[in-house]
Each structure stands twice: as structure tokens, then as C-alpha cells.
Amino acid sequence: MSIIPAPISRFFHKTASPPHFYALADKLIPWLTVLFLLLLIPGLYGGLVMAPADYQQGDSYRIIYIHVPAAWMSLFIYVLMAIMGGIALVWRIKLAEVMLISSAPIGAGFTFIALVTGSLWGKPMWGTWWVWDARLTSELILLFLYLGVTSLYGAIEDKRDAARAVSILALVGVVNIPIIHYSVEWWNTLHQGPTVSKMDKPSIHISMLIPLLLMAVAFKVYYAIAVLQAAKLQLLKREASAQWVKSLLEKPQ
């Protein structure tokens, strides 16, 4: 009947049930926090202290260790939201809706960080806070897309309906992601081309690349921690009248 083997689908159904997920998130968060710190500290130390200064940009290039991971995350989270939206629409899994909604403010935050650090970086490099370059502009559009998601969710009163609306919107918005990504090639302006993804011969030195990748993974782990926390809160709000929430609240801490 189904192409997915029974044990796997059972695992997903079990994990997707709110009380089970809540307990799992509780268990995961401390471990993830440890992992996050293990990645963040060497990443920051490697990036800010050990990596050599750039021969052209001096020390000011070091903002790359915040800027680039944040920009990657802003795209990554939007794609993830669209996937959650697809799952929520097709299988009506409540947990996917919750994860989608919880991701939106975090994604907006990363997009905002990418914009601000980019503008701070642009001032010494290009001599101006803001240029209407393709990538900056599409990052700004991405921020608008995130804000559209959160405000649409806030505006619809029935939260089940709101989650469906937001799922549709996330799927529609993801059409813009390739435009954002390939805009570098489409309108090649002031912004430098990609330096890391040229995997055969990256034009970034290895001592700069390793901290950058560490930071990128650290940001991903941070997102996992933040989204689990937010999802826990969303679940408690949505399921406030359910038995498992009541017994959780009555349980002596």
C-alpha cells in the first residue's frame, strides 16, 4: 500500500505526536547546546584570532564569519519552511505546521543579521552603507517574504487555517529562492562573486575556510536549538487543553 516501510513510517508518526516530540526536544536541547559551543568557540577563535588578515581588506574581512553563515541560514531556513509547508499540506501533520511557524522569526532574524553585517562590511569596502546590488536587494526581498509569512499567520484567527495559508505562501515564496541565488550571475554588479562554492579550487585560503565552515555548522545547530525551543512553546499554546499538557504542568518540577 505504501512505499515507505512500516518501521520508518511508525517512527515518523511517533515522533510527530506532540507529547512525544516535546519530550524528545527536551532531551535534545542540552546536547545540541554543548555541540553548538564546541563548534562556536573554535570557529570564532579560528576566525578572529588565528586566520591571517586579508591582503587587501585587512582585518575588516573578519565579519565574513558572521555575515556569510547568516546569509546561508537565511536561504536554508526558507527552503526548510517550504518543505515543512509541503508536508503540512499533503499529510496534515500538525508538527510540520508548528515547525514552519517557529522557523519564520528565526529566519527573519538571520536575514536581518546578514543585511546589517553586510552593510557594516560594505562601508569600509565599498565606501557606502547600502548599494542596490542584486544580492543585497534579494536579501532584502527575502526579509519581506519572512515578514509576510509572520504577519499572515498573525492575521488569520483560526490557527489551523493560518498554518495552511502560511504553508501555501512559503511554497509560493520558494520560487524566489533560485532567483535570489542565481541573481549573482544574472546582474553581476558590485558584490563579489561566490568564493566558497567553487569546490575544485576555492579562492579562499584553507586557514580562513575552516573557521568559516565551523561557524556555518554552528549556526545550523543554533537554529536547531532555537526552533526546538520555539516549537515547544507553540505546542504548549496549541495543545493547552490536551491531557498531556495538563499532566506536564501538574508534574512537580
Binding site: 509576510g148 504577519s151 499572515l152 487555517d161 524566489n176
Partner: peptide, 20 residues
Amino acid sequence: ALTVGLRRGGMILSLLVLPL
């Protein structure tokens, strides 16, 4: 279609549609 059920969908409509 997303905002037609809302009483004051106008502002949200522009926020949703203009980026697209």
C-alpha cells in the same frame, strides 16, 4: 485568495504580493 477571508486584508495583501 489567501487574504479574502480577512476583514482588513489590504495591507497584508500588499506585503504578500509586492515581493513576488
